[in-house]
Amino acid sequence: MKYEEWSKISRIASKKSLWILHFCTGCGAIEMPPVMTSRFDMERFGMAPMATPRQADVLLITGYLTVKTLKRVIQVYEQMQDPKYVVAFGSCPINGGMYWDSYNTINQLDKYLPVDLYLAGCMPRPEGIINAMMELMEMIEKGEARGWEKYRKNYEKYKKNQEMAFKFGKVEE
């Protein structure tokens, strides 16, 4: 069994059983319960909410991120085990959304975490979330979801950006 077949099987296996971390980081988390429960039931795709980062594969950034949450999100992201994926919901992670001029929210999630997939909608609908998950599955199967490798390679750059955000820019200002 050459390496390609083996990694293909592991990709198909991880595609069919994506475990999502139970962490509502922003206001988009209100559209997760309908997807997780009986009306849309994401478990038929093998997806299940997991309590701890160790067991999770997918980290959902549902909406805006304040600096305080960003610290916890990065801790949780680093605890998750590779291969891990980040999906960003709504307009806030793309370019700041409605809180673009708020002093406490970060505008572009891309500067701090490698994002595998963006999803439009100021609070995407459950159908949108399921579309995004199906898209993520196809990307995993084709091997394009390489966010975690990007994080490993540019680790110092990400860390520098995160530090600047945590200190709210230059301290002496």
Binding site: A13, R44, G46
Partner: peptide, 17 residues
């Protein structure tokens, strides 16, 4: 729970993953 639920072989996939 009034929902569809995973395929029967989900256990094997989870362990393989």
């Amino acid at each position: 729970h009034n929902r569809v639920g995973p395929p029967i072989y989900q256990g094997f996939i989870d362990i393989a993953k």
